[in-house]
Design a binder for these strands. Sequence first.
DNA 1: AAAATATTTTAGGTTTGTCTAAAAATAAAT
DNA 2: ATTTATTTTTAGACAAACCTAAAATATTTT
Lengths: 220, 220
Amino acid sequence: MLNYSTSEENYIKAIFHLQKDGTVTTNELAAELQTRPASITDMLKKLSGKKLVHYQAYHGFTLTAEGRKVALVIIRRHRLWEFFLAEKLKFSWEEVHEVAEDLEHVGSKKLIDKLDEFLGFPRFDPHGDPIPDANGKIETSKQICLTELPPNNSAIVCYVSDQSNEMLELLGHKKIAIGTKLEVKRKFSYDRSMEIKIRQKSPINISEQLAKNIFVKYGT
Amino acid sequence: MLNYSTSEENYIKAIFHLQKDGTVTTNELAAELQTRPASITDMLKKLSGKKLVHYQAYHGFTLTAEGRKVALVIIRRHRLWEFFLAEKLKFSWEEVHEVAEDLEHVGSKKLIDKLDEFLGFPRFDPHGDPIPDANGKIETSKQICLTELPPNNSAIVCYVSDQSNEMLELLGHKKIAIGTKLEVKRKFSYDRSMEIKIRQKSPINISEQLAKNIFVKYGT
DNA sequence: AAAATATTTTAGGTTTGTCTAAAAATAAAT
DNA sequence: ATTTATTTTTAGACAAACCTAAAATATTTT
C-alpha cells in the first residue's frame, strides 16, 4: 500500500498545494517543480493512469480523492519531520524545510506513526501549518477577516460577506474567488488599504472596504 | 561535498562490509546486493572513475582511502538512525535495520551531527556495532578467543597465537587468514569442536585445539 | 598442457524521469 | 473572425541503473 517514487510524491504534493484555487495548469506546476512543461505532461499521464489525478489534455488537472489521500500522507511525513528537526534537534525554522524534503520520502508508515507518538502528537509544524493525523484528518484553522491577516502571511479566501453584483464584479476583476490563495505584502496605515499578491502575479491593491468583506483561512 | 546516489552509496557500503578479507569479487557483491553480475561491472566502472574503488578487470576490487571515508559516513548515518529508532521510537532490534536502510541515504551532514548530539553521542548501535564519529573514527572492539564466540555470531580473525608451520598449513587448507570473516554455526559439547561458516561457503569443522589459537574481533 | 567449468565483462535492450524542438490546441488581440 | 501569441502536447533523445545473452578471461580438473 502507498508505494510511489520520490518524483511521483513530489508531483502529488505540489498539485495539492497549488490546487487550492481550482485546477492546476501545466506551466504552474512546471514553475513549482523547477522543471519543464513537457516533463509535467509526461508525469501527469502516468499519475492519471494510476487514478491519482483527473487530467484532461489542455485543461489542467486536480487530484482525485485517492490522490488527496496520498498527498496528506506525504504532508504528514513532511510536517512531522519538520517538528522533530525544530523541537528535538534544535534546527531553526528556516532550516527545517529543506531537510524534511528528503526525509518525507522515507515510506515506512510505522516509522511515521511512532515518530508522531514520540513527538506527542503535535498538531502544527514549526511554521504553524497543521499536521494531518494518521487517518489523514487535518485541522482546518478558523476563518478570519482579511483585515486581520498580518503582512507576509498567506491564506485562502473562504467566504465573501457582501455578495452584491458590484462586489462580485470587483472581485472578478481582481481575480479573487473562493479558494484563491493570497498573501498580504504591505498594509498602508493612511487609508488602511493593503497590497496583496495572488500566485505568481504582481501585487495588487485592495481597499479597506473590500478587505472587510473578504474572509480567509490560514493554509498552504 | 559527498554527493552520491542511493545506488552508489549502497555499493560502497556493501564493498566495505565484504572487503574485510581481501578483495571483493563481482559475484560476491552481486549476491550481497541481490543484483546481476553485469550490473556490478557497470557500477564498478563508474565508482572506479570517481576514484572510490581500486578496480582491475577480472581481478576484484577494494575501496580507495576516499571510498572508505564515504563508507564510514554511510555506516555512521545507518547506525545512528538504528540507535534512534530503537532508543527513542521503541522499535525492536529486528525492525530497525530495514528502516535505517532508507534513512541512511538522507545526506545532510548537519542532520546527522545534530542527531548524534541529540542521542548523546552513542558509541554502539542496538546490534552492538560501533558507530563512527563525525570524523570517521570507529571504535574497534577488543579481540576474544574464537572459543568464546557464541553460536550465530560473526567476527573477523585478527590474530593467530600459534604460528608454527603445521598450524599455518592447516589454516591455509581451511582458507582461514587474518581478516577472514567467519560465523560460528554450532558447538559440539562432546569434543568442544565447532562448525563455522566462512562467507557463502559451506560450513567447516574446527577442532578445539585450533579454535583456541584463533583470536577474533566482533565486526561486520 | 589441454579441456571443462566457473567467473567476469561486453554488447545491446528496458524503464524512469528528464530534456529540446516542433506541432497542436487554446486564448488574446486586432 | 482572422491573425498573433501563449500554452500544452507530441516526438525523439539522453542518463542512470538495471537486465539478458553472448563473448572473453580465469580457474580447475583431467
